[in-house]
Design a protein around this nucleic acid. Structure first.
Length: 349
DNA sequence: AAGTCGGGGAG
DNA sequence: CTCCCAGACTT
């Protein structure tokens, strides 16, 4: 049997039941694909369900404000996906009359939709014969055909895309595409793949040559940068006992764009309380400090793909009002990074 | 072509 | 600890 035939047979027996699986609505497929970019099904599924419940149609999503979208996205990471999701929803409503474009080429014009996602939507929703190439497909093809070209090299990207197109089943593209990805996720997994009872065990090059654990080949990752974050949490209590603090929105480039955080004093090296006492005015210039408390003695190391954030939180009590103060009970309404959300949860204002 | 962008779970 | 996840975008 052909490669694609075995994939299809395997898929029909082993496919998981997923919330978006039985749908061909472009909105649902698109939403699921954006959420699942670089994200495991288990992590993304609850977000998908909340998005569908909150925004049942692309029109609802387009009419939301970015703040709502980011809040719902909070904790998923890669927040440009959420901003692009919102922008693309507006494009569908404003430029396409609320109806998703129905071709690979047209789908590519949507923000946040690249080669993989356009292939996935066009094939799953419209049966357009476009081969998907995601992390699963790279792994399955590299192993089965014994290819050691690095999957993240320019040559590898081109090679695997053309190979995927060569071996796909254009007449059953909807199930074939989902099948090869499902196969990679369940059977041909990155570690400890289930080669013992695999439908390809008699023809898999990697298995026959003992190269399963060496494929696919990937160029080395970039190194990590260390940064030192000091979050200053101003707290003012008025005569009625109401507490106020402050959040700033991150702007410009870099991590956590458009998310909110406490006033941040970043430094070249770790700071101590004496440094904070002097330098807090760099980010809270008008604040009259009464008392500064060290929240965590040992820095919390928040790890991102390219950065390690050595973070300390400093509580700054004041007896006067300050600029942009917000009631502490409102802070949960703002979209914040997990690092900040964890602090808020633990601190209990 | 290389860098950037999150967070979490598996091993 | 390392690796990688239904990748896209910028420089």
């Amino acid at each position: 049997m052909s490669f694609s035939g075995k994939i299809l047979d395997w898929y029909h027996i082993n496919k998981r039941s997923l919330p978006w699986r039985d749908s061909t609505e472009p909105y649902k497929i698109w939403l699921s694909e954006i959420i699942l970019q670089q994200t495991r099904v288990a992590q993304g599924t609850p977000y998908y369900l909340r998005f569908i419940e909150t925004f049942p149609t692309v029109d609802d999503l387009a009419n939301a404000n970015e703040e709502q979208v980011l809040k719902l996205w909070q904790g998923l990471g890669y927040y440009s996906r959420a901003r692009n999701l919102h922008a693309a929803a507006k494009m569908v409503v404003d430029d396409h009359g609320g109806k998703f474009p129905e071709s690979y080429q047209q789908l590519l014009t949507l923000k946040g939709v690249g080669d993989y996602t356009a292939s996935a939507i066009s094939s799953i929703c419209f049966n357009e014969p476009q081969a998907v190439v995601d992390g699963n497909v790279y792994r399955v093809l590299a192993r089965y055909y014994g290819i050691n070209t690095p999957i993240n090299s320019t040559e590898g990207i081109k090679y695997f895309k053309s190979l995927a197109e060569k071996v796909m089943d254009p007449d059953h593209i909807r199930d074939y595409n989902q099948g090869i990805m499902e196969f990679g996720a369940i059977q041909c997994s990155p570690k400890k793949p289930l080669c013992l009872h695999c439908p390809f065990s008699d023809s898999c090059v990697a298995l026959q040559k003992g190269l399963v654990d060496q494929l696919p080949v990937k160029l080395k990752k970039t190194k990590v940068r260390n940064r030192y974050f000091n979050y200053l949490i101003p707290i003012y209590k008025d005569t009625s006992g109401n507490q106020f603090t402050r959040l700033n929105q991150r702007i410009g480039k870099g991590i956590w764009q458009n998310l909110w955080e406490f006033p941040l004093l970043e430094s070249k090296n770790a700071l101590e309380i004496d440094d904070i006492t002097i330098r807090y005015k760099e980010v809270l210039d008008t604040l009259q400090s009464v008392e500064i408390l060290e929240y965590n003695e040992n820095a919390i190391v928040h790890k991102l793909s390219h950065q390690h954030l050595h973070t300390r939180f400093w509580i700054i009590y004041t007896d006067t009002k300050f600029e942009n103060q917000i009631p502490v009970e409102k802070i949960t309404e703002f979209p914040v990074p997990v690092l900040i959300a964890d602090f808020i949860k633990a601190f209990k204002f």
